[in-house]
């Protein structure tokens, strides 16, 4: 194992031990998506089915949204422990260690969040499965499922960690998370189809990374014959295909990573 892998493994192992010793964090991360699944399903039980693309029930419709929400919130909170480490002086210990790359801290955090997100999503898939929501996408669909979760996790983990190096205190980051998380979720197709959105909101919904993650997931969940090039979402601006959605998510990851690299390098210089 090379030096960088050893330090990533050590850093990630620390977070996994935290998760094992404090399972409440993992469980609490599941609580909100389940509340939404249950409550929203009850509230929108009688909504018109024809508008709910591909799903047999509203719970089915919002299951991909709940999965993306789980990944998104876990990732967005990824910077909080780093800020705690900074406030408590532990980050200095890491920075004074002979790390081959200080970005190992980022990789380890992202990996831990991704694994935790997968565990949480697995629980959601199993529970919603029991309640009648079936995954129809096959092996290829599982690949897309994992890719989407990885992309959304890395995107918002990077963003959160970048903020963690810019801000000084964890409550500042928590405030920002609170400000951006709900609008991003509700200005997406996670809980309602785009046809339900007022026209002024459609642009934001169309370019929202949450929408770009939810739509491919929804396709592989409910369309056995899903195709990479098929149109997933028709908007007044463009038609979104799975290839397009994944491409934009990859692009956003690259841009955010470059931005974060610049910011973090400057802060760690």
């Amino acid at each position: 194992m090379n030096a960088m892998m050893m330090e990533i493994q050590a850093l990630a192992m620390r977070w996994f031990i935290h998760s094992k010793r404090r399972p409440v964090v993992l469980i609490a991360g599941l609580f909100q998506p389940f509340i939404w699944l249950v409550l929203f399903s009850a509230v929108f039980k009688n909504s018109p089915m024809q508008a709910l693309v591909g799903a047999d029930s509203y719970m089915g419709f919002i299951t991909p949204g709940a999965l993306v929400f789980t990944a998104f919130t876990g990732a967005l909170n990824g910077g909080v422990p780093i800020l705690f480490d900074r406030e408590l002086g532990f980050l200095d210990r890491l920075l004074a260690a002979p790390l081959r790359s200080r970005f190992s801290i980022i990789w380890a955090t992202g990996f831990h969040i991704f694994v935790m997100t997968l565990l949480q999503c697995l629980v959601i898939v199993l529970v919603t499965g029991v309640m009648g929501v079936r995954f129809a996408g096959g092996i290829g669909g599982v690949g897309v499922f994992l890719l989407v979760l990885a992309l959304i996790t890395m995107l918002f983990t990077t963003f959160s960690l970048m903020l963690a190096f810019v801000l000084r205190y964890h409550f500042e980051l928590i405030s920002i998370i609170m400000i951006i998380s709900l609008p991003l979720m509700f200005m997406s197709t996670a809980f309602a189809p785009i046809d339900y959105m007022p026209s002024w909101l459609v642009f934001f919904v169309s370019v929202n990374p949450i929408t770009l993650a939810v739509e491919p997931l929804r396709a592989v969940f409910f369309q056995p014959e899903w195709q990479m090039g098929a149109v997933l979402l028709e908007t007044p601006l463009f038609n979104l295909s799975m290839t397009g959605a994944l491409g934009v998510l990859i692009g956003l990851n690259v841009v955010t990573a470059l931005l974060a690299k610049g910011v973090i390098q400057k802060k760690l210089a």
Partner: peptide, 25 residues
């Protein structure tokens, strides 16, 4: 050894040494 005692309170001493070993390759 820094002035502030910056330790991970969740790990045990052996786990913390193992963690440190990883950082030191």
């Amino acid at each position: 050894v820094s002035q502030e005692i910056a330790m991970d309170k969740v790990l045990t001493a052996v786990e913390f040494m193992r963690f440190t070993a990883g950082l030191l390759h």
